[in-house]
Design a protein around this nucleic acid. Sequence first.
DNA 1: AAGACGAAAGTGGTTGA
DNA 2: TCAACAACTTTCGTCTT
Length: 324
Amino acid sequence: MPALNATGGGSASTGVLLEKDMEGTLECPECGSKKIFKDKTRGEVVCASCGLVIEDDMVDFSQEWREFDSGDSDKKRRSGAPISLARHDKGISTEIGMGYSDIFKLPASKRPKFFRLKKWQQRISTATERNLKYALAELKRYTSFLNLPHSVEETIALLYRKAVAKELVRGRSMESVIAGALYAACREHGTPRTLDEISEVSHVPKREIGRTYRFLARQVGLRILPTDPADYIPRFASQLQLSGVVVTKALEILKQSKEKELTSGRGPTGVAAAVLYIAAYMVGEKRTQRQVADIAGVTEVTIRNRYKELVRELKTLTNLQIEE
DNA sequence: AAGACGAAAGTGGTTGA
DNA sequence: TCAACAACTTTCGTCTT
Protein backbone atom coordinates (compact mmCIF):
# COMPACT_ATOMS: atom_id res chain seq x y z
CA MET A 1 0.00 0.00 0.00
CA PRO A 2 1.72 3.15 -1.13
CA ALA A 3 1.55 6.13 1.09
CA LEU A 4 -0.08 8.41 -1.34
CA ASN A 5 -2.52 11.13 -0.57
CA ALA A 6 -4.12 11.01 -3.96
CA THR A 7 -5.34 7.45 -3.58
CA GLY A 8 -6.97 8.17 -0.33
CA GLY A 9 -9.35 10.60 -1.92
CA GLY A 10 -9.68 12.12 1.50
CA SER A 11 -9.61 15.64 2.74
CA ALA A 12 -5.84 15.85 3.02
CA SER A 13 -5.36 15.13 -0.65
CA THR A 14 -3.00 17.44 -2.43
CA GLY A 15 -3.37 15.50 -5.67
CA VAL A 16 -5.18 17.06 -8.56
CA LEU A 17 -6.44 15.45 -11.69
CA LEU A 18 -4.35 15.99 -14.75
CA GLU A 19 -5.15 19.05 -16.71
CA LYS A 20 -7.59 18.67 -19.55
CA ASP A 21 -4.96 18.60 -22.29
CA MET A 22 -3.04 15.83 -20.59
CA GLU A 23 -6.04 13.69 -19.81
CA GLY A 24 -5.78 10.19 -21.21
CA THR A 25 -2.34 10.80 -22.67
CA LEU A 26 -0.65 8.91 -19.90
CA GLU A 27 -1.06 5.36 -18.82
CA CYS A 28 0.50 3.68 -15.84
CA PRO A 29 3.24 1.35 -17.09
CA GLU A 30 2.74 -0.82 -13.99
CA CYS A 31 -0.97 -1.51 -13.87
CA GLY A 32 -2.20 0.09 -17.11
CA SER A 33 -4.61 2.35 -15.31
CA LYS A 34 -5.53 5.62 -16.95
CA LYS A 35 -6.21 7.27 -13.62
CA ILE A 36 -3.15 9.45 -13.33
CA PHE A 37 -2.77 12.27 -10.85
CA LYS A 38 -0.52 15.24 -10.84
CA ASP A 39 0.68 16.18 -7.40
CA LYS A 40 1.72 19.76 -7.70
CA THR A 41 3.07 20.18 -4.20
CA ARG A 42 5.42 17.27 -4.65
CA GLY A 43 6.11 17.85 -8.30
CA GLU A 44 5.18 14.29 -9.16
CA VAL A 45 2.91 12.50 -11.57
CA VAL A 46 1.51 9.39 -9.97
CA CYS A 47 -0.82 6.50 -10.74
CA ALA A 48 -3.97 6.64 -8.70
CA SER A 49 -4.53 2.92 -8.45
CA CYS A 50 -1.08 1.46 -7.81
CA GLY A 51 0.75 4.53 -6.62
CA LEU A 52 3.65 4.33 -9.02
CA VAL A 53 5.47 7.61 -9.46
CA ILE A 54 5.52 8.01 -13.21
CA GLU A 55 7.35 11.26 -13.30
CA ASP A 56 9.08 13.33 -10.71
CA ASP A 57 10.96 16.60 -10.80
CA MET A 58 8.34 18.05 -13.04
CA VAL A 59 8.63 21.73 -13.69
CA ASP A 60 5.82 23.89 -12.45
CA PHE A 61 5.43 26.73 -14.89
CA SER A 62 2.49 28.28 -13.17
CA GLN A 63 2.57 31.62 -11.47
CA GLU A 64 2.91 31.34 -7.71
CA TRP A 65 0.00 33.49 -6.65
CA ARG A 66 -1.05 37.05 -6.91
CA GLU A 67 1.08 39.84 -5.53
CA PHE A 68 -0.37 42.98 -4.10
CA ASP A 69 2.67 45.02 -3.21
CA SER A 70 6.41 45.07 -3.73
CA GLY A 71 6.97 43.06 -0.57
CA ASP A 72 4.82 40.30 -1.99
CA SER A 73 6.75 40.30 -5.22
CA ASP A 74 9.95 39.58 -3.34
CA LYS A 75 8.39 36.80 -1.35
CA LYS A 76 6.19 35.13 -3.91
CA ARG A 77 7.55 35.66 -7.37
CA ARG A 78 9.92 32.91 -8.32
CA SER A 79 9.51 32.20 -12.00
CA GLY A 80 11.76 34.40 -14.08
CA ALA A 81 11.35 35.56 -17.60
CA PRO A 82 10.01 32.97 -20.05
CA ILE A 83 12.61 30.84 -21.81
CA SER A 84 13.62 32.31 -25.08
CA LEU A 85 15.41 30.70 -28.00
CA ALA A 86 16.72 34.09 -28.92
CA ARG A 87 19.13 34.04 -26.01
CA HIS A 88 22.21 31.93 -26.15
CA ASP A 89 21.42 30.19 -22.86
CA LYS A 90 17.66 30.42 -23.52
CA GLY A 91 17.64 33.06 -20.81
CA ILE A 92 18.13 30.73 -17.90
CA SER A 93 21.77 30.71 -16.91
CA THR A 94 23.59 32.70 -14.31
CA GLU A 95 26.31 35.09 -15.22
CA ILE A 96 28.83 36.13 -12.67
CA GLY A 97 29.27 39.83 -12.29
CA MET A 98 26.47 41.26 -14.37
CA GLY A 99 26.60 44.99 -13.86
CA TYR A 100 28.65 46.79 -11.27
CA SER A 101 26.49 46.92 -8.16
CA ASP A 102 27.58 43.46 -7.01
CA ILE A 103 31.25 44.35 -6.81
CA PHE A 104 30.73 46.91 -4.11
CA LYS A 105 28.82 44.54 -1.88
CA LEU A 106 31.98 42.53 -1.50
CA PRO A 107 34.79 43.29 0.90
CA ALA A 108 37.91 44.44 -0.87
CA SER A 109 39.69 41.19 -0.05
CA LYS A 110 37.12 39.15 -2.00
CA ARG A 111 37.19 41.26 -5.12
CA PRO A 112 40.10 39.53 -6.85
CA LYS A 113 38.27 36.25 -6.46
CA PHE A 114 35.22 37.79 -8.02
CA PHE A 115 37.14 38.85 -11.07
CA ARG A 116 38.82 35.47 -11.36
CA LEU A 117 35.47 33.71 -11.32
CA LYS A 118 34.10 36.06 -13.89
CA LYS A 119 37.09 35.50 -16.16
CA TRP A 120 36.94 31.73 -15.81
CA GLN A 121 33.27 31.60 -16.56
CA GLN A 122 33.97 33.33 -19.81
CA ARG A 123 36.81 30.96 -20.56
CA ILE A 124 35.03 27.72 -19.94
CA SER A 125 32.03 28.43 -22.15
CA THR A 126 32.29 26.28 -25.23
CA ALA A 127 32.95 27.52 -28.70
CA THR A 128 29.39 26.96 -29.85
CA GLU A 129 28.09 28.79 -26.85
CA ARG A 130 30.26 31.77 -27.52
CA ASN A 131 29.29 31.64 -31.17
CA LEU A 132 25.60 31.56 -30.29
CA LYS A 133 25.99 34.39 -27.84
CA TYR A 134 27.61 36.57 -30.45
CA ALA A 135 25.26 35.48 -33.22
CA LEU A 136 22.13 36.14 -31.25
CA ALA A 137 23.35 39.55 -30.19
CA GLU A 138 23.88 40.31 -33.84
CA LEU A 139 20.43 38.97 -34.63
CA LYS A 140 18.93 41.24 -32.02
CA ARG A 141 20.50 44.17 -33.79
CA TYR A 142 19.04 43.15 -37.15
CA THR A 143 15.53 42.55 -35.88
CA SER A 144 15.33 45.79 -34.00
CA PHE A 145 16.67 47.69 -36.95
CA LEU A 146 14.17 46.05 -39.29
CA ASN A 147 11.29 46.43 -36.84
CA LEU A 148 10.56 42.75 -36.71
CA PRO A 149 8.28 41.31 -34.02
CA HIS A 150 9.65 39.06 -31.33
CA SER A 151 7.92 36.00 -32.77
CA VAL A 152 9.98 36.31 -35.93
CA GLU A 153 13.12 36.72 -33.88
CA GLU A 154 12.37 33.44 -32.14
CA THR A 155 11.90 31.67 -35.46
CA ILE A 156 15.18 33.02 -36.74
CA ALA A 157 16.94 31.95 -33.57
CA LEU A 158 15.50 28.46 -33.93
CA LEU A 159 16.60 28.30 -37.56
CA TYR A 160 20.05 29.45 -36.65
CA ARG A 161 20.31 26.86 -33.90
CA LYS A 162 19.32 24.19 -36.40
CA ALA A 163 21.94 25.46 -38.80
CA VAL A 164 24.59 25.33 -36.11
CA ALA A 165 23.52 21.85 -35.09
CA LYS A 166 23.83 20.65 -38.68
CA GLU A 167 27.18 22.36 -39.03
CA LEU A 168 25.92 24.45 -41.87
CA VAL A 169 27.73 27.52 -40.64
CA ARG A 170 31.07 26.00 -41.46
CA GLY A 171 32.59 27.72 -44.46
CA ARG A 172 30.08 30.50 -44.33
CA SER A 173 30.23 33.72 -42.44
CA MET A 174 28.06 33.83 -39.38
CA GLU A 175 26.46 37.04 -40.56
CA SER A 176 25.38 35.51 -43.82
CA VAL A 177 23.74 32.58 -42.08
CA ILE A 178 21.83 34.89 -39.76
CA ALA A 179 20.84 37.02 -42.70
CA GLY A 180 19.67 33.96 -44.62
CA ALA A 181 17.71 32.68 -41.64
CA LEU A 182 16.19 36.10 -41.19
CA TYR A 183 15.13 36.26 -44.81
CA ALA A 184 13.57 32.80 -44.58
CA ALA A 185 11.79 33.44 -41.28
CA CYS A 186 10.40 36.75 -42.47
CA ARG A 187 8.89 35.07 -45.48
CA GLU A 188 7.46 32.32 -43.34
CA HIS A 189 5.79 34.89 -41.12
CA GLY A 190 4.37 36.88 -44.00
CA THR A 191 6.43 39.90 -43.02
CA PRO A 192 9.01 39.80 -45.78
CA ARG A 193 11.97 42.12 -45.93
CA THR A 194 13.75 42.70 -49.18
CA LEU A 195 17.25 41.40 -49.74
CA ASP A 196 18.36 44.99 -50.04
CA GLU A 197 17.11 45.85 -46.57
CA ILE A 198 18.70 42.81 -44.99
CA SER A 199 21.89 43.44 -46.87
CA GLU A 200 22.00 46.94 -45.48
CA VAL A 201 21.88 45.94 -41.80
CA SER A 202 24.00 42.84 -42.09
CA HIS A 203 26.60 44.13 -44.53
CA VAL A 204 26.32 40.84 -46.39
CA PRO A 205 26.02 41.11 -50.17
CA LYS A 206 22.59 40.33 -51.61
CA ARG A 207 23.67 37.34 -53.64
CA GLU A 208 25.36 35.84 -50.61
CA ILE A 209 22.18 36.13 -48.56
CA GLY A 210 20.15 34.59 -51.35
CA ARG A 211 22.59 31.72 -51.69
CA THR A 212 22.69 31.01 -47.98
CA TYR A 213 18.95 31.27 -47.78
CA ARG A 214 18.39 28.67 -50.47
CA PHE A 215 21.01 26.41 -48.99
CA LEU A 216 19.47 26.75 -45.56
CA ALA A 217 15.98 26.17 -46.84
CA ARG A 218 17.04 22.99 -48.60
CA GLN A 219 19.00 21.60 -45.67
CA VAL A 220 16.46 22.37 -43.00
CA GLY A 221 13.58 21.43 -45.26
CA LEU A 222 11.66 24.63 -45.59
CA ARG A 223 9.19 24.98 -48.37
CA ILE A 224 10.16 27.85 -50.60
CA LEU A 225 7.14 29.73 -51.79
CA PRO A 226 7.36 32.88 -53.82
CA THR A 227 6.65 35.93 -51.73
CA ASP A 228 3.22 37.42 -52.01
CA PRO A 229 3.35 41.06 -53.13
CA ALA A 230 0.46 41.70 -50.76
CA ASP A 231 2.81 41.23 -47.83
CA TYR A 232 4.85 44.21 -48.95
CA ILE A 233 1.99 46.56 -49.62
CA PRO A 234 1.09 47.76 -46.11
CA ARG A 235 4.69 48.43 -45.20
CA PHE A 236 5.56 50.26 -48.39
CA ALA A 237 2.35 52.25 -48.05
CA SER A 238 3.20 53.40 -44.58
CA GLN A 239 6.71 54.34 -45.61
CA LEU A 240 5.18 56.42 -48.37
CA GLN A 241 2.71 57.85 -45.88
CA LEU A 242 -0.25 56.63 -47.84
CA SER A 243 -3.66 56.15 -46.27
CA GLY A 244 -5.46 52.89 -45.60
CA VAL A 245 -7.75 53.61 -48.49
CA VAL A 246 -4.81 53.27 -50.83
CA VAL A 247 -3.81 49.99 -49.24
CA THR A 248 -7.29 48.58 -49.69
CA LYS A 249 -7.39 49.77 -53.27
CA ALA A 250 -3.94 48.36 -53.94
CA LEU A 251 -4.84 44.96 -52.54
CA GLU A 252 -7.97 44.97 -54.68
CA ILE A 253 -5.99 45.67 -57.83
CA LEU A 254 -3.46 43.06 -56.84
CA LYS A 255 -6.20 40.47 -56.44
CA GLN A 256 -7.45 41.16 -59.93
CA SER A 257 -4.00 41.00 -61.43
CA LYS A 258 -3.37 37.68 -59.72
CA GLU A 259 -6.46 36.28 -61.38
CA LYS A 260 -5.08 37.42 -64.72
CA GLU A 261 -1.76 35.71 -63.99
CA LEU A 262 0.03 39.03 -64.19
CA THR A 263 2.02 38.48 -61.05
CA SER A 264 3.61 35.10 -61.62
CA GLY A 265 7.23 35.20 -62.57
CA ARG A 266 7.42 38.87 -61.72
CA GLY A 267 9.42 40.27 -58.87
CA PRO A 268 7.01 40.68 -55.97
CA THR A 269 8.44 44.04 -54.97
CA GLY A 270 8.00 45.37 -58.48
CA VAL A 271 4.37 44.24 -58.55
CA ALA A 272 3.70 45.71 -55.13
CA ALA A 273 5.27 48.99 -56.17
CA ALA A 274 3.26 49.26 -59.39
CA VAL A 275 -0.01 48.38 -57.71
CA LEU A 276 0.64 50.95 -54.99
CA TYR A 277 1.55 53.58 -57.54
CA ILE A 278 -1.72 53.06 -59.39
CA ALA A 279 -3.80 52.89 -56.23
CA ALA A 280 -2.29 56.11 -54.87
CA TYR A 281 -2.93 57.79 -58.17
CA MET A 282 -6.56 56.68 -58.28
CA VAL A 283 -7.28 57.71 -54.72
CA GLY A 284 -5.68 61.08 -55.30
CA GLU A 285 -2.62 60.66 -53.11
CA LYS A 286 -0.22 60.63 -55.98
CA ARG A 287 3.40 59.71 -55.42
CA THR A 288 6.03 59.93 -58.10
CA GLN A 289 7.45 56.80 -59.65
CA ARG A 290 10.77 57.78 -58.16
CA GLN A 291 9.39 57.85 -54.61
CA VAL A 292 7.64 54.51 -54.91
CA ALA A 293 10.64 52.98 -56.66
CA ASP A 294 13.02 54.04 -53.92
CA ILE A 295 10.89 52.59 -51.14
CA ALA A 296 10.26 49.33 -52.96
CA GLY A 297 13.87 48.97 -54.04
CA VAL A 298 13.12 48.72 -57.74
CA THR A 299 13.60 51.16 -60.58
CA GLU A 300 11.06 53.44 -62.18
CA VAL A 301 11.35 51.41 -65.34
CA THR A 302 10.14 48.29 -63.60
CA ILE A 303 7.18 50.13 -62.14
CA ARG A 304 6.34 51.45 -65.58
CA ASN A 305 6.57 48.01 -67.15
CA ARG A 306 4.37 46.44 -64.48
CA TYR A 307 1.82 49.14 -64.54
CA LYS A 308 1.57 49.21 -68.30
CA GLU A 309 0.77 45.52 -68.20
CA LEU A 310 -1.80 46.08 -65.49
CA VAL A 311 -3.54 48.91 -67.28
CA ARG A 312 -3.59 46.92 -70.49
CA GLU A 313 -5.01 43.76 -68.96
CA LEU A 314 -7.39 44.94 -66.28
CA LYS A 315 -10.70 46.31 -67.44
CA THR A 316 -11.20 48.25 -64.26
CA LEU A 317 -8.08 50.21 -65.04
CA THR A 318 -8.49 50.86 -68.75
CA ASN A 319 -10.46 53.99 -68.02
CA LEU A 320 -7.49 55.29 -66.07
CA GLN A 321 -6.42 57.48 -68.95
CA ILE A 322 -9.92 58.90 -69.27
CA GLU A 323 -9.92 59.90 -65.65
CA GLU A 324 -6.84 62.01 -66.12
C1' DA B 1 12.69 72.09 -63.74
C1' DA B 2 10.71 67.88 -62.46
C1' DG B 3 8.42 63.95 -63.67
C1' DA B 4 7.02 60.51 -66.98
C1' DC B 5 8.05 57.71 -70.88
C1' DG B 6 10.46 54.36 -73.73
C1' DA B 7 14.47 52.39 -76.25
C1' DA B 8 18.66 49.98 -75.91
C1' DA B 9 22.32 47.78 -73.78
C1' DG B 10 23.97 45.48 -69.66
C1' DT B 11 23.58 42.46 -65.34
C1' DG B 12 22.73 38.52 -62.27
C1' DG B 13 20.13 34.45 -61.65
C1' DT B 14 17.52 30.34 -63.26
C1' DT B 15 16.85 26.44 -66.25
C1' DG B 16 17.69 22.65 -69.09
C1' DA B 17 20.80 20.01 -71.96
C1' DT C 1 29.41 23.26 -67.06
C1' DC C 2 27.55 26.12 -70.43
C1' DA C 3 24.32 28.56 -73.23
C1' DA C 4 19.72 30.41 -73.57
C1' DC C 5 16.44 33.08 -71.39
C1' DA C 6 13.38 36.26 -68.76
C1' DA C 7 13.30 39.78 -65.42
C1' DC C 8 15.30 43.67 -63.96
C1' DT C 9 18.63 47.65 -64.05
C1' DT C 10 21.21 51.46 -65.99
C1' DT C 11 21.56 55.05 -69.01
C1' DC C 12 19.97 58.45 -71.83
C1' DG C 13 17.19 61.25 -74.94
C1' DT C 14 12.50 63.06 -75.54
C1' DC C 15 8.07 64.66 -74.19
C1' DT C 16 4.72 66.77 -70.88
C1' DT C 17 3.15 69.58 -67.20
